[in-house]
Amino acid sequence: MLLTIDWLLIIEKLVLIVVVVLVALGIAMYSTWAERKVAAVMQDRKGPTRAGPFGLLQPVADGIKLFFKEEIIPNTSNKFLFVLGPMLAMMTAMLTSAVIPWGNKIELFGRTIDLQIADVNIGILFIFGVVSLGVYGIMIGGWASNNKFSLMAAIRGASQMISYELAMGIAIIALMFITGTLSLKGIVEQQMNHTWNIIYQPIGFLVFFVCALAECNRTPFDLPEAENELNFGYHQEYSSMKLGFYLFAEYINMFISGVVMATLFFGGYDLPFLNEATLSPNIAALIGVLALFGKAIFFVLVFMWIRWTIPRFRYDQLMNLGWKGLLPLALVNMLVTAAVVLWLNK
């Protein structure tokens, strides 16, 4: 009775969603391990070594620990919103992966499968929109905890995210002048045929990178969760897996922003000096997926490297950098890009 639905397509997409979610969770798990290892080697330590070889089972142990910890919901908190907070944080973190082209087409069981959950023609704006919703997880969680520190952190987080979204959006607009499309797939295909966008937009990339750090609440912009001044900020009252969700969401956000940076500026699943046409499509797609993951993981490692190098900004410095530094820089970048594009097209 319901229209003729291509059930195979739905199954295909569902499988893809499950795979992407599982991979993102796995990467987030091992990001915690990588974070501890990176911190350790930069401080002349060894990091986790006990659970499994090189401490590789440490994230599993941490996960089990978090699941079995007691769930505490504060008496005076707003119960529903208190539970909703981590859910929102996790959901917005996962949603962005829907429009990312993970690789080229592969052929399986006689079907051509697109390694992208949804190729919407506003892909980059979709990511931008979901990221802008990410602040609700922090705000609702922080407010529902009914705790001064959490509220402070929630407010800091909200104002920080709004401030840095502007510069990020303008950096994206400058990029759009060059690509002429909002579809992530289109952007990647364009970069495969020409050069990577980083050549045309180095300043745009710089602005985007700094804003991505701020959007992920990573040091030096980790004011919402400032350990030593706000007692871990918005997730102070959280325990057990609800806390785990917040931490997971942060790492997934990091991974996704690494993927987005790779897609927008570094050719996505494109591997230079490799002619995909000479390989069978499946192998080429696999190499592409691996290339994308390699680039994304590189960015995640750079995020960690930065975290263990620089201290946190003061709040006024943060706002100064956002509004007086990055925003004008992004605007100038946008105007110059627009002028050059107009001049070249003439």
């Binding site: 080697v41 930069m42 002349d44 330590r45 060894k46 490297w305 930065i306 190098t309 620089i310 530094g325």
Partner: peptide, 26 residues
């Protein structure tokens, strides 16, 4: 004011520490 030179200097320092001898004793 643009912070970047200082940040890169700091990152170079932390990077060099990756290859230093570890102080940990298991």
């Amino acid at each position: 004011k643009i912070y970047l030179p200082a940040i890169f200097k700091g990152m170079a320092i932390t990077f060099s520490h990756i290859f230093k001898k570890k102080a940990t004793i298991s």
